[in-house]
Design a binder for these strands. Structure first.
Length: 302
DNA sequence: AGGGGGACCTGTGCGC
DNA sequence: TGCGCACAGGTCCCCC
């Protein structure tokens, strides 16, 4: 599911409701997601105070102060189909006035019924009576636990590329990272060690906006095109965040806060449709690169 | 070291 | 209605 904008949307939806709260209980419905839950996971979270929920690339980082005063970071990756849903278990009035904050990207469910759905794998109860439910049908997501002072040694972060919406992303740096790459630019941009947080949708969309062919070799993109690509990446991500992310999939229910950026896709999942540039007579095409679909206009992307 | 291919899972949609 | 296949927002691991 989630690329940077969707993960950021989840973070923004949850943070104000959970920061400062204490975790009352942790209910693991199975021993693993993609990986087994870490040793001591439940013990570390139970009773801990949630200080802050942050994001790096597609990772959610929840800073905790444990019962014994130690500082932990609870790391969550949503994989392809992971989602967090928050619900207040308070009064019926609270339900009636629609105060449930559902930040899922699939049909929302009312967890006040204390029902556990098939793919609800982790249930976190907070001291204000609310609950966080982590559901993940494919279980490509995972949770880890690291000591706060060891966060930079977390394997995925060691060689991770710059945050695209920060000043860490610079033309010179990206140029040098790409100059050694023989692979097509599409595949290079999916590498989290080149730029962090992009996924299949936003790489396709950014390349379209920058008029760059996904087939062009990374090392041949050059400074001129990169000077267009960086702002293209930043604007598409910013617009997607402002839209609450992209909710792709078939929705049968309108419960929950669905993103709507999918309505603004220029190329993604638009194969055989006309290029969205008025002046371009091209047709959007699909090809497979590195086993994943790429959508692009072969007429205006060079 | 970089790159290709497969693995990990479940669900959905489509053609027959 | 059922079956088989392709495909899905991501990473990780093995092998060359």
């Amino acid at each position: 599911m989630p690329e940077l904008p969707e993960v950021e949307t989840v973070r923004r939806g949850l943070a104000p409701h959970i920061e400062g709260k204490r975790i009352a209980y942790v209910d693991l419905r199975r021993p693993d997601l993609r990986f087994p839950f870490p040793e001591g996971f439940v013990e570390a979270l139970t009773g801990a105070r949630i200080e802050k929920m942050d994001r790096r690339a597609k990772y959610l980082m929840t800073y905790l102060t444990g019962l014994t005063g130690d500082s932990w970071v609870w790391i969550t990756h949503l994989g392809m189909t992971g989602r967090f849903t928050r619900s207040d278990l308070g009064s019926d009035d609270a339900l009636a006035d629609n105060s449930i904050a559902d930040v899922s990207f699939t049909p929302g469910r009312f967890h006040n019924q204390l029902e556990v759905a098939k793919h609800d794998h982790v249930i976190i109860g907070l001291d204000d009576g609310s609950r966080l439910v982590y559901a993940d049908p494919r279980r490509f997501g995972f949770m880890h636990l690291v000591q706060a002072d060891a966060l930079s040694q977390y394997p995925a972060f060691v060689n991770m590329g710059p945050e695209p919406l920060s000043s860490d992303l610079t033309l010179e740096d990206l140029l040098s990272r790409l100059s050694a790459r023989a692979s097509p630019i599409k595949q290079a941009l999916l590498d989290q060690n080149i730029i962090a947080g992009l996924g299949n949708i936003y790489v396709c969309e950014a390349l379209f906006r920058a008029n760059i062919s996904p087939k062009r070799l990374a090392k041949n993109v050059g400074k001129q095109r990169l000077a267009r690509l960086i702002p293209a990446i930043q604007t598409v991500l910013s617009e997607a965040i402002a839209a609450g992310g992209s909710s792709i999939s078939d929705f049968k229910s309108s419960d929950g806060a669905l993103g709507y950026f999918q309505h603004n896709f220029d190329v993604y999942e638009r194969a055989d449709e006309p290029c969205s540039r008025q002046e371009c007579a091209g047709i959007v095409k699909r090809l497979v690169q590195g086993g994943r679909s790429t959508f692009y206009c072969g007429t205006c992307q060079k």
